[in-house]
Design a protein around this nucleic acid. Structure first.
Lengths: 358, 358
DNA sequence: CTTAGCACTCAGAAAATAAGAGTGCCAGAA
DNA sequence: TTCTGGCACTCTTATTTTCTGAGTGCTAAG
């Protein structure tokens, strides 16, 4: 009939591929040739579509679970689909509002913020949400305070430039006397404020040498402190926040026993999972990882992005779900939440790219 | 042959009941009359045992999954079994050592301790371990320190009698000046140390009245602080530590889809679970709750006990697992861990009831 | 290049069959 | 009176068989 020029035929192919992925995401069932014709007005007969499907399969975008089933996307198929999403969909107004409300409800401590964020992600996505604070942040020291704790222990309170607070109880040989402590904290604050944590440690040693005579009394105390205190640069052992793991089990593809078990174990081993995520995900920009792109998570996809506090990037948030996830939606959710979270401690509590709305 | 006096027949009945529960715990399969004869030298024929089993069933200690299957214990059956455990079994030496090593490895912060404890419980039990710090602890204030945080915020560090440390960032209208803060902390420490948190709040108000003229400058600051600070008596929103949830899925009775889903959701909803546990479990002593004794957890059992820090009871630790759990073992684990944990902050790091061992 | 037609395949559901474990009960033994 | 061997019966579980239908690939005609 009509001869399709190669690029027009290409466009049709892509349209059909999109249709398959989209339908499969919605239904979770293999997509057959006629289903496509029914749902998208392509004015093509099933037979024609079948030919195209066969092509797409040859090129590695689709597979067969078995001879006589419809097609499902391969990882490559999903990848094409995701890459073709150019504009990040705007969230429905009420969803966006919901996120904002959650964030402005009350002043929140850092840890609390992480937790809530994880929950928001999980709740909105119906998948598993996570927040992965970056371990290797090079933090600058803003302030140290030393507080007597009991007979032989001192409580150190470290505040970093970006507002993290950490407590650390340290053993010092002798009973700490209030004045010595004050003098010691002043000393520390004067010399070390503004330095990065590892740097602070070396500086402390050198300063101790220099002022040996002046600080004789506090010498011992400070040495002990120095040793103990600045190992805290990479403080937390594991620091992956995960919520909504059980949401995954609502997806029919994870209804079988072995899949559930595997996933449950995965999430239970937070350290391991954290390592995988840290390795696979970059800090910058919105990112989608599909299936075997992450060997350990070959049956899942991850939508993630970096977030920042007070302008400096400090970690990753994201959504972990089945490969068959609503990528557009997930991408907007992650994006919106990251923006909101990034703005949080700057007291803005609003979207960064907030626009007027009629 | 021999006529059994009623109490001897009673003893035999109990022996058989014990056998059924024990076997069922080990195998997970309904126990038949002949299996019992094979495993326990009772010198009774299967037929006789069947009669006894029928009796036990009438009395509500056992059930049938269906007509021609062996018996399995009812909740009441388990209860009898548990109640008949008089002595808490001693853990195997290497297991005990393992716990102790875990605890003496390094100085640990409180939160860290909770987490490790939960993990130890989970690892040793192959079930789900939990730690539930009690929310309503009436804590006494040991010390308050106020630290300038930024232009309009102050960091308050509260130390309680039992050594809890809490940070709280508070908005104070004006830029805090170092001396005012020091004066304010001194004021607070002088008047409020040793008081329980709610009490501290009321005292603060009254003291403020009394010293109105002297503290005019700090008045505003202190008022703001007072409002914000002592709401922290019951600080954390949710505070249930849970680890090893996926262990449950290794038990064959949770291999079916619906059971897994239910359990996964249960653990995901930490607040809800925390509430249930807080309601059901008492702070005192080793305790076993079986099945429907806790309506929300009717398919599980919980072995728990209170733990204390510095001599005052502050929460509950426990193991959550299938009703078919090795109760003796779980009881020893919980017991040992609780003792070890209780001793932890007293610097002993050892078992309370430590005995000589050859 | 597209479409209609047709034979073919294969997964999954439903039905049929077989095997076994364990019971309950009775009648006789101790 | 209490125990035991025997036997018929019940039900679950596993296995096999049969059926159905969705969907394909290919061919030949439009």
């Amino acid at each position: 009939m009509r001869i399709l020029p190669s690029d027009e035929s290409q466009a049709r192919k892509e349209k059909i591929l999109q249709a398959v992925v989209h339908l499969y995401i919605r239904t979770g069932k293999p997509v057959g040739s006629s289903t496509i014709g029914d749902n998208y007005r392509l004015n093509l007969s099933p037979a024609t579509i079948r030919n195209v499907l066969a092509d797409l399969e040859k090129e590695g975008f689709l597979t067969h679970p078995h001879t006589s089933a419809g097609r499902i996307p391969t990882d490559r198929g999903y990848r094409f689909y995701v890459d073709s999403i150019v504009n990040i969909q705007r969230l429905a107004a009420e969803e966006e509002q919901r996120i904002r409300t959650e964030y402005t409800k009350r002043r929140r401590e850092l840890e609390d913020l992480m937790l809530s964020t994880t929950r928001v992600l999980s709740a909105l996505s119906h998948c598993t949400g996570f927040v992965l604070p970056h371990k290797e942040i090079v933090e600058k020291l803003r302030r140290v305070d030393l507080i007597p704790f009991n007979r032989e222990q001192v409580l150190a309170v470290l505040v970093s430039e970006s507002g993290f607070v950490r407590n650390h109880v340290m053993n010092v040989g002798t009973a700490p006397d209030q004045d010595a402590l004050r003098k010691a904290s002043n000393f520390l604050n004067d010399r070390l404020a503004g330095l990065e944590f590892p740097e602070a440690q070396t500086r402390l040693t050198s300063e101790l040498m220099r002022f040996e005579h002046e600080m004789r009394d506090e010498q011992a105390l400070l040495t002990t402190l120095g040793k103990d205190l600045f190992g805290l640069g990479a403080p937390q052992d594991q620091d992956l926040y995960v919520e909504g793991a059980s949401n995954i089990f609502n997806f029919p593809e994870f209804q079988d026993y072995e899949a559930m078990r595997t996933f449950a174990h995965l999430v239970d081993e937070k350290e391991a999972l954290g390592q995988v995520l840290a390795r696979e995900l970059s800090q910058k920009g919105l990112q989608v990882r599909i299936g075997a792109e992450m060997p350990e998570l070959k049956d899942f996809s991850v939508v993630s992005t970096g977030y920042s506090l007070n302008g400096r990037p400090v970690g990753i948030i994201g959504i972990l779900g089945p490969k068959r996830m609503e990528y557009e939606r997930m991408m907007s959710i992650v994006n919106t939440v990251a923006n909101l979270m990034s703005g949080y401690f700057e007291g803005r509590g609003g979207l960064i790219e907030e626009k007027e709305r009629p």
